[in-house]
């Protein structure tokens, strides 16, 4: 499972970086979104991958699922969501004001 999750995070990051380096705002926004998904999964996995463990410490249990990364991921998701909404609005405004959806406002000839 570790290899699968690690590969998935790597794939998401690679796609995110590739898209974020494109010249138009729409792929850039998509790239940043993919990047934030990868980061959230990564944060989540930092509490170690466990199956069927309770989220609280108790006696007679084999262990527990670390609750801190879940709280961190929740915060990161909320912030990432707000930032994505903002950057979409900004991209739309840039498209309207600059007359082009290129990140520099206009394509170089």
């Amino acid at each position: 499972m570790e290899a699968l999750i690690a590969g998935l995070i790597g794939l998401l990051t690679a796609c995110g970086v590739y898209l974020a380096l494109r010249g138009r705002t729409f792929p850039v926004v998509l790239g940043l979104t993919l990047l934030s998904y990868a980061v959230n999964l990564f944060l989540f996995a930092m509490g170690r991958l466990t199956v069927g463990r309770p989220p609280v410490i108790g006696t007679g249990l084999p262990g527990y699922a670390d609750p801190v990364p879940q709280a961190l991921v929740l915060t990161a998701i909320v912030i990432g969501f707000a930032m994505t909404a903002f950057v979409i609005m900004l991209a739309l405004k840039a498209r309207a004001e600059l007359g082009s959806d290129h990140v520099d406002g206009a394509e170089r000839p």
Partner: peptide
């Protein structure tokens, strides 16, 4: 708007790196 778009995108990428660093340290 042009400068602001660059500023926001660069800082969003920076925030992603920050989270990766924080997550690794926590792990």
């Amino acid at each position: 708007i042009r400068a602001g778009l660059h500023y926001v995108v660069v800082n969003l990428a920076g925030s992603a790196l920050f989270l990766i660093a924080v997550g690794t340290l926590y792990g």
